[in-house]
């Protein structure tokens, strides 16, 4: 993930290594190159344009600076870390079981991610229940049940008569002595208003600690639209990037982070239960720009 973007973006900075001053026309050229690069890296076009405009406002011609390249790097690094947000642990309910709702498009990776997240939390000492709340996908609950039993997680189905049984979830949470309930909801498109309405209802009635948007790292131009619609339908508090192993550019990640305004918290890097890790925005931004040690780098400037 992001390796391809890193390789290309570092090329855009390269010509500015040796110049002693930075003129407006250099800045224009730099932004032009950066723009094409972001487009080719699958960042949604409206996001590319806004990012470039924000950088245009910040970047000013410089005389007598040590290195224009470092100046550009620092400005982009700051913008990128602001965009990606910062890592935080999942919110916990101090009075009972913590509820994490997973939502996203069809096939984005929700059910697999529910199991991976559950397993991750279990290894951190939590008692975790995977809750099936997808009435539509054939054998969707069965998929979650199998994943739970294979990985030593508890399982509970909240699907009754082809619907999500909210009352059952509420009473389960009241009685439960477990630490975490991860609710796996049905896939829905950002244009399916009825389905977004359903998601909105689930969240209003259950008031979860986290609503996590599971997005496919391989999304294209649609990424921005998706983030926007889900954010409008539900109080999305974090993003989980699934299938990060399928994408070396990471454009969708940038689009989703930018439009949703919430941090990317985890990423999935394969089909196996352990192919899952917390996402560190600062580390990622530094990696993309080829800055080995961001703290030392920022001090130097």
């Amino acid at each position: 993930m992001f390796e391809g973007l890193a390789k290309r973006i570092q090329n855009v900075f390269a010509p500015f290594g040796s110049k002693g001053l930075l003129k407006q026309e250099d800045i224009d050229q730099f932004l032009k190159d950066l723009r094409w690069l972001l487009i080719e890296a699958d960042v949604s076009l409206p996001v590319v344009n806004e990012l470039v405009e924000r950088l245009r406002e910040k970047l000013k011609p410089q005389t007598g600076i040590v290195s224009p390249q470092d100046y550009l790097l620092k400005t982009v690094y700051e913008e990128l870390t602001a965009l990606l947000g910062s890592y935080r642990p999942l919110k916990v309910n101090p009075r009972g079981i913590s509820l994490y709702v997973l939502a996203g498009l069809q096939g984005s990776g929700k059910t697999t991610t529910a199991a991976k997240l559950g397993y991750f939390l279990k290894r951190n000492g939590k008692s975790v229940v995977l809750g099936a709340a997808d009435p539509y996908r054939p054998a969707g609950a069965e998929q979650l049940r199998v994943l739970a039993s294979e990985n030593g997680l508890y399982f509970e189905s909240f699907v009754e008569n082809g619907k999500v049984d909210i009352a059952k979830i509420q009473s389960f949470m009241k009685k439960s002595l477990h630490d975490v309930l991860i609710l796996d909801t049905a896939g829905r498109l950002h244009v399916e208003t009825d389905m977004l309405q359903e998601l909105s209802m689930i969240n209003k009635q259950l008031n979860p600690q986290e609503v996590l948007l599971v997005v496919d790292a391989m999304l294209g131009q649609e990424a921005a639209n998706i983030a926007k619609s889900f954010k409008e339908a539900a109080p999305v508090s974090g993003v989980i990037l699934a299938k990060a192993d399928g994408d070396e550019l990471g454009g969708a990640a940038l689009s989703v982070a930018y439009v949703s305004g919430v941090p990317i918290l985890f990423m999935g890097t394969g089909e196996h239960i352990r192919d899952f890790e917390p996402f560190d925005p600062n580390e990622t931004a530094a990696m993309i720009l080829g800055i080995g040690n961001p703290k030392a780098f920022l001090r130097k400037i």
């Binding site: 699958d42 498009l105 096939g107 496919d216 391989m218 999304l219």
Partner: peptide
């Protein structure tokens, strides 16, 4: 090919 993946396809 998943339409939402666009040029990734």
């Amino acid at each position: 090919l998943d339409g939402t993946q666009g040029i990734q396809g």
